[in-house]
Nucleic acid binder design. Structure first.
Length: 587
RNA sequence: GGAGUGGUAGUUCAACUGGUUAGAGCACCUGCCUGUCACGCAGGAAGUUGCGGGUUCGAGUCCCGUCCAUUCCGCCA
């Protein structure tokens, strides 16, 4: 035997093992040297067990060796399990009833003083923890998150396997596509000047699988997007990717609801009320100013455009939309608070934020522009009572709604109106198919260019493409988009029409998506799919804000890995082989 | 690409309006301590104040630039 191998984990022993001789392996979480007796808290991923080294019961050699043990040493301890004279004061310790009296001890590995304490690193900077991520992984929290993630995989696989889905791996090296996010590119050594792209999602592949007759597909898959990062966005992230043939929206929605219910049963100890509520994109925007609203609180938006059309206030009079919401008891908001909200509104392109305080009297910077009648109409629209505050944004419809929606969420968070024990989970449907991009001066697909239009809207494709609704659906959970999908186009001519609408010439379409258009000609079943944001869902089930906390080795917001120092430079030789040469950075 | 916040000992933070030798908790090291579990007590070591420049008699503090982390806007079909 090369070392004393464990018989039990550090989270396993209870009084039932009293008197048994056991071997534990683990890291020293904490050492308490009382001069005579030494206590070691031994940690592995299952828990912590107290080890006792009593000089009266062990040889002096043994005792001297034990004296040298420090935090994060990896040791093996053989000893007898005993009942503690006094139950451990650390109430989180699963093994607090017992302790192990060391009889043999091996130091398997010494450890230098770590850059931060494993048992106390809540407040340590992100930078340091990421640099030494493997040390942070020793913490309970991160381990629990990864274990939950692993259970998530297993529930997903069981669910789809039980329904006769086929798990298929799709290529990581693929063709760069012009639409959507920026691609990560991989230069080809064999074909100088040519590049692979890493998939933003296996979208075309899974559709080709449908054409290939694999009529129920799923995959837990990495996706890559070279865009700027956020707390809930990493350059590489995971999806549960699903596609089915001979289906329409309801089939995929039912399938998704079934899986979400399984996940909720395990992770939230409750069942969902199925079927989930549906709300159209238009209604979500009108009532909540968001395509992923949080419905755990009220403060719905009320549009008052009609009442102020003829007011003397130019801003309201000329605005396409005036909308806002009523904050119950918000009359107490200070000037400072209102300024803060105004600044926040400006981030979302609003030019300003109007407010009406309903106190002993009505206080509002715009009061002078509003007639008694108009004011009355506004107050009653919002059902505003004394003590309330009305916040209003006037702008073109999209800005007024988005901005009010953002404010609604911020105010709810500030006032702690969100009941975290509740879950709001529902579908948003009937998204627009296309959206006009001022920047690119063309239509772009809201979802992706393979999404089918609603059949009753197809006639609008020629005349007003922006009005066409898509057969797309998003699953929204507590204000987060946690899954999204659509019924796909399965006719070659419709697909070509869509490419045409988004400004791809016949030639470009052939060059970029020719293989796909060809495939559509050879008998394509009606099909559709959905993709789950795995990291985001796991983060929500773990109750953490950052998806970094559910990824073993995440990147920073500047997309670098502090631990291994990637991305990094490569040698001239490596570049040469690829036929590449670096340009001087232009400043 | 833009905005905010932060960067001081291993670590978490402090240092009022620019002013003596940059402090404290935890960790670390040494000694003492036989039932601790945030062990205790005494002592000690530990700093290029992110980096570069500037203003000043004097800069952790003010100014300019830059880098890193983080949050948000843009972006993310």
């Amino acid at each position: 035997m090369t070392f004393l191998k464990r018989t039990h984990t550090c989270g396993e022993l209870r009084l039932s093992e009293n008197e048994k001789t056991v071997v534990l392996n683990g890291w020293v979480n904490k050492r308490r040297d009382l001069g005579g007796v030494i206590f070691l808290d031994l940690r592995d991923r299952f828990g912590i067990t107290q080890v006792v080294i009593n000089p009266e019961n062990v040889s002096s050699d043994f005792y001297e060796k034990a004296k040298t043990i420090r935090s994060e040493f990896v040791i093996a301890v053989c000893g007898k399990v005993g009942k503690r004279p006094e139950i451990g004061k650390n109430t989180e310790m699963l093994t607090r009833e017992i302790e192990v009296y060391a009889e043999q001890l091996e130091i398997l590995s010494v450890a230098e003083v770590t850059p931060f304490e494993i048992s106390n690193c809540e407040n340590v900077s992100e930078e340091l923890k990421l640099k030494y991520r493997y040390l942070e992984l020793r913490t309970q929290k991160l381990k629990e998150n990864l274990v939950l993630r692993s259970e998530y995989y297993s529930i997903v696989r069981n669910y789809f396997n039980s329904l006769s889905f086929v798990e298929v791996e799709t290529p990581i090296l693929m063709k760069s596509t012009p639409e959507g996010a920026r691609d990560f590119l991989v230069p080809s050594r064999i074909h100088h000047g040519k590049f692979y792209a890493l998939p933003q999602s296996p979208q075309t592949y899974k559709q080709l699988l449908m054409i290939g007759g694999i009529d129920k597909y799923f995959q837990i898959v990495k996706c890559f997007r070279d865009e700027d990062l956020r707390a809930d966005r990493q350059p590489e992230f995971s999806q549960v990717d699903v596609e089915m043939s001979f289906v329409e929206e309801i089939d995929l929605q039912n399938l998704t609801e079934g899986l979400m219910n399984e996940l909720f049963k395990v992770f939230r100890k409750k069942e969902l009320e199925l079927p989930l509520q549906r709300i159209t994109y238009k209604e979500a925007m009108r009532r909540f100013g968001s395509d992923k609203p949080d419905l755990r609180f009220g403060m719905e938006l009320i549009e008052i455009t009609q009442f102020v059309k003829n007011s003397d206030f130019e801003v309201f009079k000329n605005a396409e939309t005036v909308t806002g919401f009523c904050v119950k008891g918000g009359e107490i908001f200070s000037r400072k608070k209102l300024d803060e909200l105004t600044d926040y509104a400006k981030k979302f392109k609003a030019k300003g934020l109007a407010y009406i305080k309903i106190g002993e009297e009505i206080v509002s910077p715009i009061k002078k522009y509003l007639s008694e009648e108009v004011l009355e109409n506004i107050l009653s629209s919002f059902d505003a009572q004394k003590g309330d505050l009305i916040l209003l944004v006037a702008d073109k419809e999209s800005v007024a709604q988005t901005c009010s929606g953002a404010l609604r969420l911020k105010v709810a968070k500030d006032l702690n109106l969100i009941d975290e024990s509740k879950d709001s989970i529902f579908w948003v449907v009937e998204f627009p198919l296309l959206e006009f991009s001022e920047e690119e001066n063309r239509y772009v697909a809201c979802h992706h260019p393979f999404t089918a239009p609603l059949s009753e809207d197809v006639f609008l494709m020629e005349t007003s493409p922006e009005k066409v609704r898509a057969r797309a659906y998003d699953l929204v959970w507590n204000g987060n988009e946690v899954a999204g999908g659509s019924i796909r186009i399965h006719q070659n001519d419709v697909q070509r029409k869509l490419f045409d609408l988004i400004g791809l010439t016949e030639e470009e379409a052939r060059e970029k998506f020719g293989f796909f258009l060809d495939a559509l000609k050879f008998g394509t079943p009606p099909h559709g799919g959905i993709a789950f944001g795995l990291d985001r869902q796991v983060a929500l089930f773990c109750g953490v804000e950052q998806i970094r906390d559910v990824i073993a080795f995440p990147k920073t917001v500047s997309a670098s890995s502090l631990m291994d120092g990637s991305p990094s430079t490569v040698t001239e030789e490596q570049l040469g082989l690829l036929g590449l040469e670096l340009k001087q950075k232009t400043t």
